[in-house]
Design a protein around this nucleic acid. Structure first.
Length: 220
DNA sequence: GCGACAG
DNA sequence: ATCTTGTCGC
């Protein structure tokens, strides 16, 4: 992964890579293997985790954790440069290839339309979507209170994502396309991955693994 | 100019 | 992201 020395350089990389995005998809509606990705931090240490679940049973098929060091400060809009180096390493060590990667963050709902999920998708060639827990960019109306209810996430006159309620009465999540998946398919998959909780099982599994990996490497 | 700002 | 107790609700 090309690592920029400055924020300006990072923005240029995003503008450049954006031309390689596949925004057509449509992606698999019933993916057999779905990957969840997350990164945990402690001071300058970090642990990236990737967990692959069976798309039907949601059982774990494979998982990889990679310890590392923070090499890029957090800057809103440039999250990929902080998290992806280790995440890509973890993806390369998987024994099976996922049909979909669910990222913690945004895809094209981004200041330059190239969020973490887009970046991961372009670099790996894998279909990817972003599922974020909080608002970042875009305007939206509060979706209805039932699971499955949603509203458009709009930015500069474009629909860049969907604010989706994954359980009755819980805070909605922000879904946006990353690479090689369309928005309908992305939301359909998010609902399939949230039979019980607000966040996708893939995200929950990767979150647990990344934290555990941080702890188990604290002595190293 | 001032604040907001995925994780 | 991470620092953190109790607390409301199912």
């Amino acid at each position: 992964m090309t690592m920029p020395a400055t924020a300006r350089e990072a923005e240029l990389i995003q503008e450049e890579l954006r031309s390689r995005l596949d925004l057509v998809g449509p992606g698999e509606r019933r993916p057999a293997r779905v990957a969840g990705v997350d990164v945990a931090y402690a001071d300058d240490r970090l642990a990236a985790a990737v967990v692959i679940l069976d798309g039907v049973t949601l059982q774990v098929l494979d998982q990889v954790a990679v310890p590392g060091r923070v090499a890029f400060d957090y800057v809103p809009g440039l999250l990929a440069f902080r998290e992806l180096p280790s995440v890509i390493q973890a993806l390369e060590r998987l024994s099976v290839t996922p049909d979909l990667v669910v990222c913690d963050g945004y895809g094209i709902a981004h200041p330059r339309r190239f969020g973490l999920a887009c970046h991961l998708g372009v670099l790996t060639g894998l279909p990817a979507i972003g599922v974020a827990k909080t608002a970042f960019v875009g305007a939206y109306d509060e979706p209805a209170h039932e699971r499955g209810a949603w509203s458009d996430l709009c930015l500069d006159g474009d629909v860049v994502g969907r604010v989706l309620r994954t359980q009755d009465g819980v805070k909605p999540v922000f879904v946006s396309v990353g690479h090689a998946v369309d928005l309908d398919t992305a939301c359909h998959n998010v609902l399939a991955l949230t039979p019980r909780y607000r966040l996708p099982e893939t995200t929950r599994a990767a979150d647990r693994l990344s934290r555990e990996a941080l702890r188990s490497t604290s002595g190293i």
